[in-house]
């Protein structure tokens, strides 16, 4: 075995630097590639379309905040934003409560049919949305839930229950059984145990699923495009697509719309980046 410091210290440093330079260059280039497009949209959202066509990649010369007001009031983005907010907040709240209830049962109790319930719920993870979308369209029409936010919320909750239960059950199962035995001895009822032990201890896991569901549903497109067609029911992704379809050439205004959709996500990401990264990748690693 050769001693590691066979070369002179200064030369070793030089080699380390050379090895570091391509790495630095790569890091810099990929940072521009991954983050640059969003900065570009942010700049365009503050410029008018004629300014953009004159020079697409210039910095804003004068900042047009009024474009956001225009988008919000004149182009219906306000409606789209509130529809998205209502749908996502309601669906995430329902998913968290219903998912935690199921996960608690599966992780904590022995009962007949435990395995069957687990199999049925978790098999939802491998069902592609395409398999259900056509019949859901028919079913919602029959139940008079087609073109309603309620219908979309129900479909979202059903569709994302599997991943929610999967993540929560994994966490709940690790809570020591002693806690529950002690609670039972102290005379807690079943529902009190769920409410006062599982939920408070499970907060980190609940946070993870809330993040995951929030991001996925805020961005959801396929179900929304099939189940909503009226303009005042559209969620943000549909609204932007619709606006893009009608105003292909008004790049400035489309960019403002994109910023309205990206804004909340970026804002949350700036403060909770670690939680959001953990949340988005939670289903994939165990």
């Amino acid at each position: 075995m050769k001693p590691p410091s066979a070369v002179e210290p200064s030369a070793a440093k030089g080699i380390a630097y050379l090895r570091g330079a391509p790495l630095m260059a790569f890091a810099l280039i990929y940072t521009i590639v991954s983050g640059g497009p969003f900065l570009w949209v942010a700049m365009m959202s503050l410029r008018t379309t004629p300014e953009i066509f004159a020079s697409p990649y210039a910095l804003p010369s004068s900042i047009h905040w009024e474009k956001f007001v225009d988008a919000w009031t004149k182009s219906n983005y306000g409606t789209y934003f509130w529809n998205s907010t209502i749908v996502v907040v309601t669906a995430v709240a329902l998913l968290t409560v219903i998912g935690a209830m199921v996960a608690h049962c599966l992780a904590r109790y022995r009962f007949r049919g435990n395995r069957l319930v687990r199999f049925v719920i978790l098999s939802g993870m491998i069902l592609p949305p395409q398999l259900m979308i056509l019949s859901l369209f028919q079913i919602l029409l029959e139940y008079h839930l087609y073109n309603t936010l309620t219908g979309l919320i129900i479909v979202y909750v059903a569709g994302h229950l599997a991943i929610t239960v999967y993540i929560l059950e994994g966490f709940f199962a690790q809570i020591p059984q002693d806690l529950f035995d002690a609670a039972r001895l102290d005379g807690y009822s079943d529902l009190e145990i769920f409410w006062r032990i599982t939920l408070p201890i499970g907060v980190p896991a609940l946070f993870t699923t809330v993040t995951l569901n929030f991001i996925i549903l805020w961005n959801e497109f396929l179900y929304a495009v099939v189940l909503l067609t009226e303009d005042d029911k559209r969620t943000l992704p549909l609204g932007i697509m619709h606006f893009m379809g009608n105003h292909q050439l008004d790049v400035g205004m489309v960019a403002t719309g994109l910023m309205i959709a990206i804004g909340p996500v970026i804002l949350l990401y700036a403060f909770f980046s670690e939680t959001m990264i953990r949340g988005m990748t939670a289903g994939a690693v165990r």
Binding site: I215, W218, N219, P237, M241, I262, V265, I266, Y269
Partner: peptide
């Protein structure tokens, strides 16, 4: 990681 959080529409 930012692009992962963005919707397909964006």
């Amino acid at each position: 990681f930012t692009p992962v959080l963005m919707s397909y529409v964006v």
